[in-house]
Design a protein around this nucleic acid. Structure first.
Ligand SMILES: NC(=O)c1ccc[n+]([C@@H]2O[C@H](COP(=O)([O-])OP(=O)(O)OC[C@H]3O[C@@H](n4cnc5c(N)ncnc54)[C@H](O)[C@@H]3O)[C@@H](O)[C@H]2O)c1
Ligand SMILES: NC(=O)c1ccc[n+]([C@@H]2O[C@H](COP(=O)([O-])OP(=O)(O)OC[C@H]3O[C@@H](n4cnc5c(N)ncnc54)[C@H](O)[C@@H]3O)[C@@H](O)[C@H]2O)c1
Lengths: 214, 214
DNA sequence: GTACCTCTGTGAATACCATAACAGAGACAT
DNA sequence: ATGTCTCTGTTATGGTATTCACAGAGGTAC
């Protein structure tokens, strides 16, 4: 039914992720949603109804003009696109303030996306379990990444260590990064980097907040 | 020289914020950068050189074909666009795992953008100083927001409390939000919301990491 | 001086993305 | 049966962001 040969735009896969969480979370009169209309899903996710319909169209998911979309089937269909069949194992590099918050949040939250190991250069954090996740020394990276079949990395170390951390993980076969350090990672085109620059996001808000206030 | 009547695109103001931080941080042979070429700044920020030139063009900043752009003047010029003259005061709502990480990071980091108050419903956190920032009960919101002239809010509470927090702040004149809760805030068009959905960002990486691996 | 080189500045072309607009299908009332 | 209503599915349109391509300016080598 669903086929990965379709190309999804970057924006669309982000929205699919959000549709899924909204559907998982939102109960309708205390029982799971049966069917949902595009405009309902749009309101929950914060987009327009036509955009929802087009996203679902691109993944080849069909609804019923009278009842809307079957929520359970839609969840399944989105999962077929977003999730790797056996789940994806993630490494966290840097167990500082941000890293610990991420561990606390993501541990056991997404069944198909697990942070299975954390690494930190500070011996204070290594060889213990933090927020339910085992924390290792960077020296153990080669062994642990291979043992645990880690495919992607979250970089939450200071800027100066970010490129080095990425380089080491790439040598071990990691092909995707979520990078919180405000520095541009140099990677080959076969590796995907998603850069989150919170300072930039904050300054953007400050800019617009000022525009509307004055 | 610089005039705010120019309209900057959302993407451009984000990149300006990054150019600035890259310039502030990067020393050249242990002394501040004097001049910098568009391709150098592009490499540091992770964009293309022509995009850098285009951005600087839109803010009306000129370089020298032989020496490049004067870094100090550029910093000044970017500041004239991004910073409110007296700085912007920010409130943080929710001093949980993520909120504390944000406090630790942003306190004293950006001179023109300060988190001047935090609010949390949990009495364990209120009426004390956390990571250098005073933390109040939500009951004190009206007084504190007015006293400290707070213009924008960072929402780091669970989804269920996000809309309520935003509503209360908006009634007190706050016009911009950085929202980490994975829920669409309902706000009038005069209020700017920047939504950061880390789960979505993580799932995007998982998607692309899988594509390249197989 | 002249040929050449590099970099800025910018109009034109391209790619991408969201919205608008509408065709089609089923339900329902009369 | 027929008209109307609502929602889906899809094509057409518009707008915006980025890249392409190149003119212009100044500096350098010889
Ligand atoms: N905390 C925030 O809210 C925030 C906001 C914006 C950006 N960031 C960025 O996120 C990153 C992490 O921020 P943070 O606040 O958690 O910093 P932090 O200083 O609290 O934590 C950094 C951690 O990384 C570890 N570390 C340093 N070098 C390492 C290396 N080479 N290998 C392994 N571990 C190493 C340190 O021991 C420390 O535990 C930084 O790049 C920061 O710029 C954080
Ligand atoms: N921690 C992460 O890495 C992460 C990742 C993705 C999304 N988020 C989102 O960020 C938000 C905060 O996450 P967190 O991990 O810090 O959660 P948390 O549970 O650690 O902290 C939430 C804090 O908000 C306070 N709070 C609850 N209701 C409140 C209210 N009405 N007013 C004031 N304070 C209130 C609680 O007392 C608590 O201190 C959540 O919406 C979460 O979904 C966090």
């Amino acid at each position: 039914m669903t086929n990965d040969s379709i190309t999804l735009s970057d924006k669309t896969i982000g929205r699919l992720s959000l549709y899924r969480r909204v559907l998982e979370r939102t109960p309708k009169n205390n029982k799971p949603i049966g069917h949902i209309f595009s405009h309902e899903l749009a309101a929950l996710a914060g987009f327009s109804a036509v955009l929802v319909r087009r996203d679902l169209m691109t993944i080849g998911f069909s609804g019923n003009p009278k009842k809307g979309y079957d929520a359970a089937e839609l969840l399944d269909c989105i999962g077929k696109f977003l999730d790797a069949p056996g789940g994806t194992n993630v490494a966290l590099i840097g167990v500082g303030n941000l890293g610990r918050a991420l561990l606390a949040y993501f541990t056991y939250r997404r069944p198909m996306l697990s942070i299975v190991a954390a690494f930190d250069a500070n011996p204070e954090f290594t060889n213990r379990v933090i927020q339910g996740c085992r924390c290792y020394s960077p020296d153990d990276m080669e062994r642990v990444v291979q043992e645990k079949n880690i495919r992607m990395g979250i970089i939450a170390v200071p800027s100066v260590g970010a490129q080095d951390a990425a380089d080491r993980l790439m040598r071990l076969g990691v092909t995707g990064f979520l990078n919180f350090a405000p520095v541009a990672l140099r990677v080959p085109s076969s590796v995907y980097v998603n850069q989150i620059d919170m300072t930039m996001e904050l300054e953007k808000v400050a800019f617009y907040a000022r525009q509307t206030k004055e």
